[in-house]
Simulated assay, not measured.
Amino acid sequence: MITVTAIETGKARMKTAQRVGRDDRSAIGRKIDIFRDRDWVEPLPILCFLVEHPEGRFLVDTGDTWRNSVPGYLPGWNPFYRQVSIRVAPEEEVGPRLAAMGLDPARDLAAVVLTHFHHDHTGGLDHFPHTPIVGPRANYAVSTGMRGMMMGCLPQRWPVWLAPELVDMDGPAIGPFPASHPLTSDGRVALVPTPGHVAGHCSVIVRGDDRAYFLAGDATYSQENLLADRIDGVTNDAATAHETLRRIRDFAALQPTVLLPAHDPDGPRRLREGACL
């Protein structure tokens, strides 16, 4: 049996221009819109997902950390971090959340799988020193060094022991996705390429007995945005982001699919109720 459980690790707020970007604006123009925007969306969950499969437990993304509240943790020279508000209590981090579920985060997982390396997806890595960390090679390539720090990553805050297993999309096509990377031997848990929010972004498809679960990371911020074909204000490549949304919709048209983005407040309800696209 395969199950998926949502785990919330605090709240994030973003500008309305980040949640939905304008198609008629360039990549730089969409960033300017975020800086100029005075309106904030409601606090959104920072979600990661526990996938339980006969081959083990897989955690998709790690949420964020309470250390965002510590002066100096976020680089003050990058004004982007003033356009997002992260609030995480220590007990809301993914480690304590897993412990409350009766799991030892350091020992009881087969792997941690990252959809991408933005700070609100890697903030909980410290809890997994003995667990393989799997991530897309193409996204890691744009997430390190000064380039990564400019693009919403905090490589300087990653654990000193971090040596992720970087993977390529070297497996078979899955529906409209031209390639994949199987995470289990039966291929029922697999990474698929969903670039757009950032280069090299991936999502995780979990194929259960009667429905699929599409763990979308930030490929879309919400099911509403997906259905309306609205891309976010972060993407540098609007055409690629729209193509990714089309492929997700096409995948869901092939089989019952529960969509689970990382910041959709309605996602946990859909997961509980098995509500499909």
Rank of each mutant, 00 (worst) to 15 (best):
T131H: 07
G175I: 03
A6D: 11
D266L: 15
Q223P: 00
D266H: 14
A212L: 01
G76A: 15
I2D: 08
G21V: 05
W77F: 11
T244N: 06
A106S: 11
M101Q: 14
T62N: 02
G102T: 07
L98S: 00
R97E: 10
P178D: 15
L74Q: 02
R247M: 00
A199F: 02
L98Y: 06
L227G: 02
D264F: 09
P136Q: 00
G274V: 01
S222M: 05
A239W: 08
N236P: 04
V134K: 00
R67Y: 10
A6C: 07
D186L: 03
P71V: 09
G187L: 09
S185N: 13
G217C: 02
R87N: 13
Y73M: 05
P193T: 04
F128P: 07
T244K: 04
G95K: 02
A212D: 13
D266K: 15
D39H: 13
T194C: 03
E42A: 15
G148L: 06
V198T: 14
I174S: 08
N78H: 08
A228C: 12
C153P: 02
E273K: 08
R19C: 00
L59D: 03
D218Q: 06
H130F: 13
E8N: 08
D266S: 14
P178A: 15
G29K: 11
A262F: 10
L227K: 14
N139H: 15
C48L: 10
A17E: 05
E224H: 12
G175V: 03
P75N: 06
D266V: 07
T115M: 04
C48A: 12
H121E: 13
G72T: 05
D33K: 10
T5D: 12
D250M: 05
G56Y: 04
L254C: 04
I248A: 14
G56P: 08
I34H: 07
A238H: 12
R137K: 13
P155Y: 08
R97Y: 05
G76I: 00
S85F: 10
L47R: 00
H53T: 02
T65D: 02
I32K: 12
D120K: 04
V51S: 10
P96C: 05
A190H: 03
A199T: 11
L226C: 07
G233M: 01
R147M: 12
N236M: 14
G95D: 07
Y140L: 14
G123D: 06
L245P: 01
A179H: 12
L183D: 06
L254P: 02
D33F: 09
E165C: 12
L271S: 10
N68C: 10
A100E: 13
A99Y: 07
T257G: 09
R87C: 09
D23K: 09
M169C: 01
L227F: 09
P136H: 12
D23L: 14
I86S: 07
C202G: 00
T65E: 06
V167T: 05
R67F: 04
V198P: 00
R230H: 14
L50Q: 03
C276P: 04
P155G: 08
G274A: 01
L166D: 00
D33H: 08
A106W: 02
A252H: 01
L50R: 01
V4F: 03
A262R: 01
G217I: 00
V112A: 08
G208I: 05
R30G: 01
R270F: 01
N236K: 09
A138R: 13
P90Y: 09
V189F: 11
E93I: 03
D61S: 15
